[in-house]
Nucleic acid binder design. Structure first.
Lengths: 351, 351
DNA sequence: ATGAAAGCGCTAACAC
DNA sequence: GTGTTAGCGCTTTCAT
């Protein structure tokens, strides 16, 4: 890196004060005179001084950086969350370091090691491999506080869970109230918590509404971004095809819409549809698609607040008692738009 | 951060060697005996030693980190590039720090300052505001080498441009060869280079093929991710509607497909279509969509190689002559798939 | 309120 | 090949 970079020493010399005073003036400490602050700031500006981050964090033991390890940034939902989070944390002077692991265990492990040695102030993690021993050990040994996003790890950790049960219950009730009897779920067959919970919650919600659980109505393409096209075509070609569909809002949704369009079915006349998680590309769809979604602004606020609270406690080094781990159930919001209507068969007699 | 963290001093003591030897052993230096290496590594492992990154980069003046500033990570194209880049750089021991600015000038400026003071080894930037004075000044004062991605800045800088002209020429020739006379372009009306160049290149390509430039065929929704639905509906409802469409592969593409589906038009029977940049959500579309795309794997390799070359030169501090700035024209690849065919009117007489 | 001095953990330069 | 030492740029005591 540039050797000609200005240091705080240069600033102090130019301002005619000691090194310590310059530091205090720049970091807004208590015991500095107005005059000193002014002179130091002028000197810093004229030298275009920028503090050296490595030196600062070596000494102060704070990197002012928060790390995120998400399983797949290509997933627009994570991308959106990251965007909000970054904007939110930046306001407190924190930078966000992201590490994307593409659902690969080895990348998750290397990533965790790297993040650990960089001594970030805190971490937000959503590893794909919740039950891997090495990964769990690594997390446990992490020197900084960390927050888990919708994963059920082996280790006890602060976690924000998404309320899949509540969310899917809301959607199924909505369909049931409209008179739908046959409801399908199209979602990735992932092993991680969101995948597992969505399927379980869907079945539970059906039972709670006295609806039959028809396993054929569960369309489970292997990965979160892969195509559900063929499966949806098959499902919707059946004689007793579902009249309503709950669809995961990633690539699965676009291929489902594609299949619906190819079959010439109309939404909501022939088929009602609710997406889980509003994918960006769908927000202008015609007709507007009813969505079960997470309020990412609220979520990123909650994450930030929790993190800062933990960071605060951590300042006093070994505090008396470790606080109980956070276990927050974060709600989904159901936004009814134009993609749901009563099923045809029910409407017909009324005509 | 944890105060009980092990340092290299602990490792050296346990291994029974000096601090310097421990350091050399761990960083794979030249002059260390096999025996020392083994003992130090054993000691490090048993202590669960992790080097302190701040100390290391303060001393060695290298952060082993490369920063990216992209205008919008929510754009799946950037997300994909970042993913490949991260995997590529990780292999050389580099971490990738991403900063997402959502096309906001103030975030770009703050971001650049933060990245600068963290003394990253190199930067990859694609700012939305190419011609902003403050942003250009900031770039010029950057202490580390940086690479610009498809932007025309005021300052001279290493840049990889995408070959929009070559790419669009290829697509228009393809359509012309199939017999299309009326070709439309649907793309965001962004002020940044990709937006500008795409439009200009499209017009040039039409002229080169003796096709009329019909301004009404240019559909320009305001932002790269916004909806083109209404505009595409209008365009395709016209009597002399285009028989072929070139569509930007972001949210614009999904809303265009949505419009086409609502109008009941079939691809490629009623309308041929090529997307620019394969959005992830479209890779399984039926019919498969012909695409003008960037080879992100190759691109990330070129970026990495260029960066390491610049880093190499930078080691020798002020080298004799600064090398001429890189101005690389990066090619598009045209992948013909199933979404293009001769126009109907031309086929009819043949029947 | 200010200056002097220590030292964060590490690597690089130098001696042997 | 190894140990010793200096010092990266900064914040934080500790005097005054």
């Amino acid at each position: 890196m540039a050797s000609g970079r200005r240091t705080i020493k240069d600033v102090a010399r130019l301002a005619g004060v000691s090194l310590g005073s310059a530091s205090r003036a720049l970091s807004g400490a208590e015991n500095v005179s107005e005059d000193t602050i002014a002179r130091v700031q002028r000197a810093a500006a004229s030298l275009r001084y920028r503090p050296n981050h490595a030196a600062r964090s070596l000494r102060s033991r704070s990197t002012k950086t928060i790390g995120c390890m998400f399983s797949d940034m290509t997933n627009p939902l994570y991308a959106k969350l990251f965007d909000m989070l970054e904007a939110r944390l930046e306001r407190q002077g924190y930078m966000t370091l992201i590490s994307n692991t593409s659902n690969q265990l080895d990348r998750e492990i290397r990533s965790l090691k790297l993040l650990a040695e960089r001594g970030l102030d805190a971490l937000i993690v959503a590893p794909a491999h919740e039950r891997n021993r090495e990964l769990n050990d690594l997390l446990q040994q992490l020197p900084m506080p960390y927050l888990v996003l919708d994963r059920e790890l082996l280790v006890k950790a602060d976690t924000i869970f998404f309320d899949h049960a509540g969310g899917l219950a809301r959607v199924v009730e909505h369909f049931a109230a409209l008179g739908h009897k046959r409801i399908g779920l199209v979602t990735a067959n992932l092993k991680s918590r969101p995948g597992r919970r969505r399927i379980a919650a869907f079945k539970t919600a059906l039972r709670a509404n006295d609806l039959k659980v028809i396993d054929e109505n569960l369309v489970l393409p292997p990965s979160s971004m892969s195509s559900a096209f063929d499966d949806v075509i098959k499902l919707l070609s059946r004689k007793d095809r579902p009249t309503a569909l709950v669809v995961q809002g990633t690539g699965v949704l676009s291929s489902t819409l594609n299949a619906i369009s190819v079959l010439g079915l109309r939404i909501p006349d022939d088929l009602s549809l609710v997406s889980i998680g509003r994918a960006d590309f769908i927000q202008h769809h015609v007709p507007a698609i009813s969505t079960l979604r997470v309020d990412y602004e609220r979520l990123s606020n909650e994450i930030a607040e929790h993190l800062f609270e933990r960071l605060g406690n951590n300042n006093g080094h070994s505090s008396r008692k470790p606080p109980p781990p956070l276990r927050r159930l974060f709600p989904y919001v159901f936004e009814e738009r134009a993609s749901t209507a009563p099923p045809r068969k029910v409407l017909a007699p009324a005509l």
